[in-house]
Design a protein around this nucleic acid. Structure first.
Length: 636
RNA sequence: GCCGGCGUAGCUCAGCAGGCAGAGCAGCGGUUUCGUAAACCGCAGGUCGGAGGUUCAAGUCCUCCCGCCGGCUCCA
């Protein structure tokens, strides 16, 4: 007997029937069921024992099923309009679904509308979605007749004897399921985009056309989703960057993926860097600096030319010698370490550098500040003894969280990546390092997830993702062991025993890259930086032209007290206009001065939040801003 | 790199099927002297991303290049 939980919580016993039959008997509108946490088709037979849950369309778990069915409706519509398309795959994804097709003629973006309309018809027709099981030989024959070369390839990989298809009206598709019961359930959908996608993600193979869409059980769900997309668009750092005069990047003369930091963006970055430098000194790091280029032999020795050449800029030739722009800082730091011998007593050595590197990224993957070709890593290399490894990882984790929390993030996800199939170094070292990583996260009481075999070929690692204000995850911190470079550069220290030993080396970046980090911060804060990062902290706004001299005096006084303040008064500009400008520039503090304030030597404080705090002494306001900046809170 | 979309004034965009390059904002000049998200009037501003080509005529059509945007296994 299987115990089946109904959506209202009631549990009934059932056997020898399908989930669908039970649902119909119970008058339940089930679209899927969950057995052992696995989503499965409600058309399946109930298992003999175990606990099953029937899921309705409203259940969040059903969303995946709905999306997958929507992908079929999309394929159905495309097949009707373009009978010669070949179908590839059409899964549910995080925000919706897609389907990959091979079109005889690539469709144009205008075709999306037609396809959407046809999908609407199929939904209205409310075609029952049925499952058809075929013996493998028949399945092969069916796909062969239809000329479905991609589906045939998928079928070749399947081991089962019975192959499932799903059929709705005249449309049939090889599919694992599960699916909702009829096309009528796919009401609130929208096609989002058209894109190219290689078959199986392989650039060597055919370029297919991918159509993206999204679908929700309710109109409100769809509207809310579109609203969130709009909100993300409003916070897009590529839009806010130029608007807030932070940076520019689309300059044909300079080159793709190369960033110009304008004064305000440079100020934000400078504040971050100042903080970063101070904290690194406080945490026992030594700062070093290294050049932007190095001779070919350096990169030969490091192995970069052998394994990372794709990612490097072409060499420069100077006086018959080849130089490369650095894609990483590590070889330089190692060279500093190797410039003399080291005793076991002086480890750990921690070298840190805001090191600007250049990497060749394929033109199509560049994206604002988030993916660029020239960027500054907040890099460091920790060189230590085996007995120090665990404590180094622990303190680095604490340090990372401190840096991320200060920047305004409070939700983290930690991932531990272990040894991959192809690796260098001794397994014993891998084990020690991996265990040290594991014990360190446990000791810090951080929840973490293991990504088995996902480490780099040269060592295991821990990555930290943060969630921003819209709940999006960004990978920032990475802490990686390296068993490759210490060998290649023959790094050593003299142990207590008087012999030379190979040290452990850990690469780590906390923010990742300054460019990317600032991009993420812009989106996280929607451009409204906390006082310590705001490029302009306060603007003084005169009510009439009469108060311009006074407003300038106030700004000068604040500047003298260390506040980033500007006087914005201009002939002919009303207070309303000035406030609007300040709001658009997201300046945290607006200091209004009219005749009354000028008379009393005060200013009226208005916050970016719209709050009006009335007249105050200038010193009072300076103290307030300094306090907010010093504490690095987001509070104004 | 590849597929699709795009590039018109500093910014946002209009310019339909080739036929004299437009608007709003910003800028500049003036008027207004104004109390918490856009006062009013005027002026100036463009090798239509670049280079070729088709045409009597190209912002518009074709080719190449540059740059930007969405995407390129979240696997039936």
């Amino acid at each position: 007997m299987a115990a089946v939980e109904l959506p209202d919580g009631e549990v009934v016993e059932a056997q020898d029937m399908t989930g669908l039959e039970l649902a119909q008997a119970q008058g339940v509108d089930a679209v899927a069921m969950v057995a052992d946490g696995q989503l499965c088709d409600v058309r399946d037979r109930l298992p003999a024992t175990g606990r099953i849950r029937l899921v309705t369309a409203e259940d969040p778990l059903a969303l995946e099923v709905l999306r997958h069915s929507a992908a079929h409706v999309l394929a159905h519509a495309v097949r009707r309009l373009f009978p010669d398309v070949k179908l590839a795959i059409g899964p549910a994804i995080r925000d919706g679904f897609y389907y990959d097709f091979e079109f005889p003629e690539p469709p144009r973006s205008e075709d999306l509308e037609r396809i959407e309309q046809e999908m609407g018809k199929i939904v209205k027709e409310d075609l029952p979605i049925e499952r058809v099981e075929l013996p493998k030989a028949e399945a092969v024959e069916l796909l062969r007749r239809g000329g479905e070369v991609y589906k045939q390839e998928l079928l070749d990989d399947l081991q089962q004897r019975e192959i499932s298809f799903y059929k709705q009206g005249e449309f049939i598709d090889l599919c694992r399921g599960p699916h909702i019961l009829s096309t009528g359930g796919v009401r609130h959908f929208k096609l989002m985009d058209l894109a190219g996608a290689y078959w199986r993600g392989d650039a060597e193979r055919t370029m297919l056309t991918r159509i993206y869409g999204t679908v929700f059980p309710s109109r409100e769900g769809l509207k809310e989703h579109l609203r969130r997309l709009e909100e993300a668009r409003r916070r897009d750092h590529r839009v806010l960057g130029p608007q807030l005069e932070l940076f520019s990047i689309n300059n044909e003369d300079i080159g793709a993926g190369l960033v110009l930091w304008h004064p305000k963006g440079a100020r934000v970055r400078q504040e971050l860097e100042d903080f970063w430098v101070r904290e690194h000194y406080r945490h026992g790091y030594q700062l070093v600096r290294s050049p932007h280029i190095g001779r070919a032999r350096l990169w030969e020795r490091s192995g970069h030319l052998e394994f990372y050449r794709e990612g490097m800029y072409s060499p420069l030739n100077v006086e018959g010698q080849e130089f490369y722009l650095k894609p990483m800082n590590c070889p330089f730091h190692i060279d500093i370490y190797n410039s003399r011998t080291h005793s076991w007593r002086e480890l750990p050595v921690r070298y840190a550098e805001l090191g600007t590197v250049y990497r060749y990224e394929r033109s199509g993957v560049l994206h604002g500040l988030l993916r660029v070709r020239g960027f500054t890593q907040d890099d460091a290399h920790i060189i230590c003894r085996p007995d120090q490894v665990e404590e180094e990882i622990r303190s680095t984790l604490r340090f990372a969280l401190h840096m991320l929390r200060t920047a305004g993030f409070s939700e983290f996800a930690v991932y531990l990546s272990t040894r991959p199939a192809k690796f260098v170094g001794e397994p014993e070292r891998w084990d020690l390092a991996t265990e040290a990583l594991r014990r360190a996260v446990q000791a810090e009481e951080m929840r973490y997830e293991v990504k088995e075999g996902d480490g780099a070929f040269y060592g295991p690692k821990i990555d930290i993702d943060v969630a921003d204000s819209l709940g999006r995850a960004w990978q920032l911190t990475t802490i990686q062991f390296d068993f490759n470079l210490p060998e290649r550069f023959d790094m050593s220290y003299t142990g207590e025993d008087g012999h030379l030993h190979r040290p452990y080396m850990i690469h780590r970046a906390l923010y990742g890259a300054l460019e990317r980090f600032v991009g993420i911060l812009i989106e996280h804060y929607g451009g409204a930086f906390p006082p310590w990062l705001a490029p302009v902290q306060a603007v003084v706004l005169p009510v009439t032209e009469e108060q311009i001299p006074y407003s300038e005096a106030v700004a000068a006084q604040l500047t003298a007290e260390g506040v980033r303040a500007e006087a914005w008064g201009r002939a002919g500009k009303t207070l309303r206009w000035l406030i609007r400008q300040a709001q658009l520039q997201k300046v945290p503090y607006m200091l209004v001065v009219g005749p009354r304030e000028a008379e009393e030597g005060k200013v009226a404080l208005r916050l970016r939040t719209g709050e009006d705090l009335g007249p105050q002494e200038v010193e009072e306001i300076a103290a307030r801003i300094e306090q907010a900046a010093r504490s690095r809170t987001a509070e104004l």
